[in-house]
Amino acid sequence: MIPVNLVLGLGLLIFSIGLVGVLVRKNLIIMLMSLELLLNGVNIILAGLGCHFKSPRGSVFALFVIVMAVSEAAVGFALVLSYFRQKQRADADELNELKG
């Protein structure tokens, strides 16, 4: 028996760690990894609530979140590689061309 509070706390903690990573780090690849952490935190919360309410819906939604995470990773990698090919760096500081 796992208290649902613990599961929500764990998911939220992983989400917050990922949020710190996205906001603080400048390395584009580590930022993408932190995005994966964010989505994993959401998945833990969905699975925990599905277990709590004894419903398969949590797993179904978490499955869709995983599909979306994979898509985001693929497009993100394509963008990072394209950017790297132009600039030869993977630093978010250089991404300021749309600043106006």
């Binding site: 649902v4 509070n5 939220l12 903690l13 710190v20 709590h52």
Partner: peptide, 28 residues
């Protein structure tokens, strides 16, 4: 930018753990 997520986590964790505990999850 570190304090914002930390505050968010602390606030919601407080709300989560203050609500009535041990609504046991997990059908055996």
């Amino acid at each position: 930018i570190v304090a914002m997520p930390a505050l968010l986590a602390a606030e919601i964790a407080l709300a989560v753990f203050k609500s009535r505990p041990a609504a046991a999850a997990g059908p055996e």
